[in-house]
């Protein structure tokens, strides 16, 4: 079952036809998405080409420090994405730090445990396993954390009257924020819950499909996929909870006040 089919660059270019159709629709209806779609597609392709080259090099060198450095760089970059996706964000270093910190902490924790106790490559940090694994965990955690953060900051701003009404009635900052913390957690968990629910029925996941396409037996690919989904779910959850609670802490103070002045003033 090792029938791997290599793609030509022409095949790859052909796949962009549908994105171009989307762009044309956007132009026709003045949706203002064409430019964004064009640049993000280009950017995606360039990023992947570069990362292909980079991975080749890293796998060849196989150094623990280099692996750690690349993982760190991935985390910092994902953190910037989280930061950029928030409409209202915490001012200063907190706007970047909370999302990045929560995501990196949960992602690293889950990846290290998975590598050293479940997948167990030799050595455990082997970049061939560590980086793709960390990347998958990070990508999903990033989505969850950015949704949750966007939610909590936007909600704190928009629901100020309601939150302060709860404070005025004698609630602590945590009690006052609870309904909004809950909503943010739900928003952060939603993509991974949807993904898990749809897994195998609506969608065959990318990694599993990739393994099957490269000749791995489906039941082996499935085991990997289940493991990965559980890891992603766990890391996303930890990241979302950490980021939401840290933001709530930052958006309030020890005299149980709502501090919208902690948000970036636009």
């Amino acid at each position: 079952m090792s029938t791997y089919i290599s793609l030509s660059y022409f095949d790859v270019a052909l796949a962009s036809v549908f994105i171009i159709i989307n762009g044309l629709i956007s132009i026709a209806f003045k949706l203002g998405l064409a430019q964004k779609l064009f640049f993000v597609s280009l950017r995606m392709a360039a990023q992947l080409f570069l990362v292909g080259l980079l991975l080749n090099w890293i796998f060849t060198l196989s150094s623990p420090w280099l692996t750690a450095g690349v993982a760190l760089a991935m985390g910092l970059f994902a953190g910037r994405e989280i930061w950029a996706r928030q409409d209202k964000r915490l001012a200063g270093v907190w706007g970047y730090g909370i999302g990045t910190g929560a995501m990196m902490f949960s992602g690293m924790l889950v990846a290290v445990v998975a590598l050293s106790a479940m997948i167990e490559p030799q050595p455990w940090w082997s970049p061939r396993y560590a980086l793709p694994l960390f990347g998958m965990i990070l990508g999903n955690t990033m989505t969850g954390v950015s949704l949750a953060l966007d939610n909590i900051t936007t909600m704190a701003d928009r629901e100020r009257t309601a939150i302060e009404a709860r404070l005025m009635l004698g609630m602590t900052r945590w009690q006052a924020m609870l309904p909004f913390v809950r909503r943010s957690l739900r928003a952060g968990f939603m993509p991974i819950i949807n993904a898990m629910a749809a897994m195998g029925i609506v969608a065959l996941p990318g990694m599993m499909t990739g393994q099957i396409l490269s000749g791995v037996a489906p039941q082996e690919a499935v085991k990997y996929q289940i493991l990965i989904m559980l890891l992603i779910g766990g890391a996303t959850g930890l990241g979302v909870i950490g980021a939401t609670l840290a933001s709530t802490y930052r958006l309030t103070d020890d005299r149980h006040r709502l501090r919208l002045d902690m948000l970036e003033q636009k």
Binding site: E159, T161, A162, I163, E164, A165, R166, M168
Partner: peptide
Amino acid sequence: MLLPAESGWW
């Protein structure tokens, strides 16, 4: 107890 001009509902 503060009763603001605009009451909040959640």
